[in-house]
Design a protein around this nucleic acid. Structure first.
Lengths: 145, 145
DNA sequence: CCTCATTATTGTATGATACAACTAAATTCG
DNA sequence: CGAATTTAGTTGTATCATACAATAATGAGG
């Protein structure tokens, strides 16, 4: 059993994650969680905490707080659901969209700086392998749980 | 300017990180931070909080607490530095080593499960691209800061 | 309508982290 | 030498991310 790649991946992944999270904290306006939530709302449209929590693999209470924080900042609006009066939709605002785009730009720019000497092929492969990893995990998770 | 790979990487990275951190919390005995600190001590030998903090890109106070927690669990020993009586070395114990190895196995096993259908070539490339990313970031950081 | 399920919020707890204040020891320099 | 400064480490306080448990309000099925 060839463990070499496995060990390399495992080691590199821990470093990779630490580094990215620390860098984000230093340079980004939006918190990581806020960024991800806004991105979700922007990409997939308004949703309630339950479905957001499911999509983001988080606890409902976590999303509830994060959404409340975004409402506080006027980045999202909490819209009552007329059909089910327990439920709400969180909808990204103009302001939220602007902030999201601003942060995306910043992130892309930073990433571009890091990868500036990579070949197009490397970047392409890296993106696809990360994607493949995520897809694999999703598939496996859906089969279990 | 071809942004496609960049955007893919950026998106996939956020998901990748979230997923891994959540999975770790569910399945691992050691906290992420404890794992990384133990791995550091095991790979590079005893060290004080200052140098550990530098190596791990963390604040000294953060490492101080993490190290204290490991001492508490008997995974490391705090050894006085006879030359400089302000300073200490943290040294991994037998127990700590066992716990580390146990956790490594667990992590490798989980990763192996996820990547079981990947080709050897894909795994190899993925590991190297992650490594390359980390090295690139290190180089750029050393040039600045 | 009464019970049970569901949507969301809030209380409480933990982990990871940083900055600032502090202690004790070492170093430097007049 | 001795005062002033620097250095290694710890501890207080604060923030963010997260989960689990308890609770409130509403909906749905018999």
């Amino acid at each position: 059993m060839s463990n070499e790649s496995l060990e390399l991946i495992e080691q590199q992944v821990t470093d990779f994650i630490r580094r990215i999270i620390l860098t984000e904290k230093r340079h980004d306006n939006l918190d990581r969680s806020a960024y991800i939530l806004l991105r979700q709302l922007s990409s997939y449209g308004p949703a309630g905490v339950k479905s957001l929590a499911a999509d983001l693999h988080l606890d409902i209470s976590t999303v509830s707080r994060q959404a409340a924080a975004l409402v506080e900042k006027k980045y999202v609006e909490k819209v009552a659901n007329p059909i089910d009066r327990r439920a709400y939709f969180y909808q990204i605002t103009e302001l939220g969209l602007n902030e999201l785009e601003e942060n995306k730009r910043r992130r892309y720019h930073r990433l571009a700086g890091i990868l500036e000497e990579w070949t197009e092929d490397e970047k392409e492969k890296f993106g696809h392998l990360l994607q493949k990893y995520n897809q694999t995990v999703n598939q496996k998770m859906n089969r279990k749980e």
